[in-house]
Design a protein around this nucleic acid. Structure first.
Lengths: 342, 342
DNA sequence: TACTTTAGTGCAATCGATTACAAAATTATA
DNA sequence: TATAATTTTGTAATCGATTGCACTAAAGTA
């Protein structure tokens, strides 16, 4: 079969000696077309192996049935799981998911948004980069009347919906759990406080401490990258002081693991002397010999919900802008790294 | 800004009192347009916030600059890493990546291919599902003259390119390493032998054994799923016999981990009594307290290479069909689970 | 039988950009 | 100054599907 074998409605119309309009209507099951004609067209279309050109249809209708998803990196478990959720929810509705990576850089984010808008996607899902401060590029999307749904890492822009987990509660739960294990001097490894999620987790930590009558120590709140080495060196810093923590609540599983490895190296017993809790419930946390307690973010659910918000938005009346904030409940998975009552 | 604010070349042409053709040519830097006009058009376009409608362009040119990637599940580390490679290689060339999941089911694969072809993608990348036997749906892609590049899990279809790792060599390397650690009774956990990759790993295992003068025992070749429990129960099966292995080479990291956990439970010392090697170099393997030796598949590189093959294919003359088989070298990461000479 | 409905189709414009080909404007040449 | 050569721009068709409006043919009514 050669390249030019694409069958169009014109080919069908010629073969049947009817107009392309009739063919189009017949294929779309338009009530104005007689049953006979419809069946004839359908059969002929099938016989000729006709495939609708979605491109032409998209140009005419203005709907491509493509959505874009912008994430920092696609091969992080959390993000690929969210994307899985989005894909599985949208696929039955005929949408395709285009993926873009920001590499944690606003400039890439800006470019990606631009090219996505040019390709006429029907909507955008995104988790902003760490470096994103300004929201001009995001407001541009809003102005073009393209639905945008944030997930996990959002920015406050009026008119835009978001799906997140209750990070405050995640932080609170983790901290409360540690307190209930008898820990009092709980240190917190926070991520980049430019991101709401980390700020909220931190606030949850503070709130839990206060609720249980423990005054949080300032020196015990550290900003730590999501890397093993960062967690390890944070432990070194903490242990170089006189006052040492009896628990670590890390906003990142990676930093938590680094901390655990470093503590073991120093001969500190976990969870007897120090309890450790991470965040994200990365796959590896449950595989460890000393499985790590962690807060699950239900990423697939997050993706599904984001997709649902999007669908509501486009299926609703176009004039009405919906601003919906969906907040999912985080779940604490208690494992050996913090469980003293075995 | 209202929905209908999309600026077209006609809007520009009206504003400047010139034809749309001239505007189009000016924007495309056509040499037939005078410098003055070009600059005027450019400036006006920028001022009016003109954005090229890629859809219209795609309909005209027949090129959407979209490619589809079909994988079993997008949130498996290996697949999302390959996709990352594809995206990073193609993005600078103006391509967008659409992702599809087959959920390891041929029927979904068939549907995905159909809808991708309808949306006029410029190419398809795919790793077939475990259940894929028949290749009719794949040959259909070939007939439509749409480039298709397999990665990792391929099918032999003449005219189609693929990028894989040398699984035979991966199996050989792993087995050879075990032999060099002094192991003689090496068991192999194979995956679904319907997939070439597992067959090849198995053959590499057999070949290494024979090369080192060890006759492989049939009962030591088990078909084991890529799950912890499967690895664990395989160990139970093996240890219920008199003749027990002194090493496990698992074609899956998950099964390897399950095996390790089960062996530890039974009090078997690793690597002293039994050495274990996995496959895929999943992130968790290096994080374990007993890090697991594994064969790396260089997924990001695989994606990049697949993308390059695709680009060659479409940039080359259209009449010439390229069938390129790229085979990447796997790399063995030796870790504590099999390293006796510390 | 003559006229009104109604069902079923066709014509032609549209979505936005591209591009042969034709035509006009400009410059060069005699 | 008239004509040829060269630039520059415009006209109109095209990509494939959709749809308002017009029109034909068949059925219904008086």
């Amino acid at each position: 079969m050669a390249e030019k074998d694409k069958v169009t409605i014109y080919d069908i119309s010629k073969k049947l000696n009817i107009s392309a309009a009739t063919v189009s209507r017949a294929l779309n099951n338009n009530p104005k077309i007689s049953q006979k004609t419809k069946e004839l067209v359908m059969k002929t279309a099938a016989k000729m192996n006709y495939k609708q050109n979605k491109l032409a249809q998209a140009l005419k209708s203005g709907k491509t049935h493509n959505v874009g998803v912008i994430v920092p990196y696609i091969n992080r478990n959390f993000f690929s799981s969210v994307i899985r959720g989005i894909e599985e929810e949208l696929s039955p509705h005929g949408y395709h998911v285009i993926i873009c990576q920001s590499h944690e850089d606003v400039n890439n984010e800006i470019k990606q948004i631009d090219t996505l808008l040019n390709t006429q996607i029907d909507g955008i899902f995104m988790s902003v980069a760490k470096t994103t401060q300004d929201t001009d590029h995001i407001e541009k999307v809003l102005k073009e009347n393209t639905p945008l749904v944030f997930f996990d890492r959002k920015k406050d822009v009026t008119g835009l919906s978001s799906v997140t987990i209750d990070d405050f509660r995640g932080g609170y739960l983790a901290t409360e759990h540690l307190i209930k294990q008898g820990c009092k001097k709980i240190a917190h490894f926070s991520g980049d406080l430019n991101l709401e999620i980390y700020k909220n987790r931190h606030e949850g930590y503070i709130a839990a401490m206060k609720d249980y009558g423990i005054e949080p120590i300032k020196e015990f709140s550290l900003q730590v990258n999501s890397k093993l080495e960062s967690g390890a060196s944070a432990i070194q810093d903490l242990w170089s002081e006189d006052e040492k923590p009896d628990a670590i609540f890390s906003a990142s599983d990676y930093a938590a693991l680094g901390a655990i490895q470093e503590l073991k190296k120093m001969g500190v017993k976990i969870p007897e002397e120090v309890c450790v809790v991470g965040f994200s419930n990365e796959p590896f946390t449950k595989y460890m010999e000393l499985p790590i307690t962690s807060v699950d973010q239900t990423p697939v659910e997050m993706g599904r919900n984001a997709a649902k918000v999007f669908l509501e938005q486009i299926e609703g009346s176009k004039t009405l802008t919906i601003e919906k904030k969906v907040v999912l409940a985080p779940e604490l998975y208690i494992r050996d790294s913090s469980n003293r009552n075995l």
